[in-house]
């Protein structure tokens, strides 16, 4: 297959040192993704380059990073399709840096926990299909892969470190939407404050960068609609 060389300008940071950029030249073919190019750099040129990755097919959400300024999953970002002679690779914004392209997901996941972390949902595909014997209904894993792209792309998260952020709010909405026996009121109370769903200012970048069609912005607006509905209901003495 036709090989070409592409320059990678990669953000570098080791604890105790000053951040910098380092440029590598990488051979790529039409199937090379940014993630495979980074692996190639680590294997053949620089064993100190650190980055997160796991599944290689946009199912785990670990390889979120900024490529040419855009939040993407490196594993499904084709290098040649980017069309730039130099590919700039940087870590996600709005998360503490551990090293190089690695950010600390601790805060991000901590914000998820009060949502009750919906991980599985009732199946929604192939509505005609029947459920096998011995299974109440098909369960499937949630769409959200917890990659953190939305939090990095959000202009409000950029200025408000306490903002819960799109992913956590989307998880909250999933819980309200499909409570499966739990009380949505606690989750609604959790998001009903100035750093919660009301902080969003409708830039919609979260939904634009989401690699998994979660539409966090839509979820945030749905939370607001639900809260508004409940508050108006309370005004008229209903719950």
């Amino acid at each position: 297959m036709a090989e070409q060389t592409v320059q990678f300008k990669v953000f570098r940071y080791k604890q105790g040192e000053r951040p910098s950029y380092q440029t590598y030249t990488v051979r790529v073919d039409p199937r090379t993704t940014v993630l495979r190019a980074l692996e190639q750099i680590r294997q053949e040129q620089d064993g100190t380059l650190a980055f997160r990755h796991s599944c290689f097919h946009a199912s785990c959400g670990t390889c979120g990073m900024k490529v040419n300024g855009q939040e993407v999953l490196a594993c499904v970002t084709n290098v040649l399709e980017l069309g730039t002679p130099v590919v700039v690779v940087e870590p996600l914004d709005n998360a503490p840096l551990i090293t190089d392209l690695v950010v600390d997901m601790g805060d991000f996941y901590a914000r998820y926990q009060p949502a009750g972390m919906p991980m599985i949902r009732e199946s929604e595909f192939l509505p005609d299909s029947q459920v096998p014997e011995g299974v109440e209904h098909h369960m499937r894993l949630e769409n959200c892969i917890e990659c953190g792209l939305c939090l990095s792309a959000c202009p409000v998260a950029g200025s408000d470190p306490l903002y819960l952020g799109p992913a956590a709010l989307a998880a909250a909405w999933r819980m309200v939407e499909e409570p499966r026996g739990r009380d949505p009121a606690t989750v609604l109370a959790w998001v009903d404050h100035e750093h919660g769903c009301w902080r969003c200012h409708a830039a919609f970048e979260c939904s634009e960068v989401c690699p998994s069609n979660v539409d966090p912005a839509g979820a945030i607006m749905a939370l607001r609609r639900e809260l508004t509905r409940r508050k108006i209901g309370q005004l008229f003495g209903r719950r």
């Binding site: 604890q15 951040p19 870590p91 601790g106």
Partner: peptide
């Protein structure tokens, strides 16, 4: 939680 001092914000 800011353990590492550096955050790109």
């Amino acid at each position: 939680r800011q353990t590492y001092g550096l955050i790109r914000r």
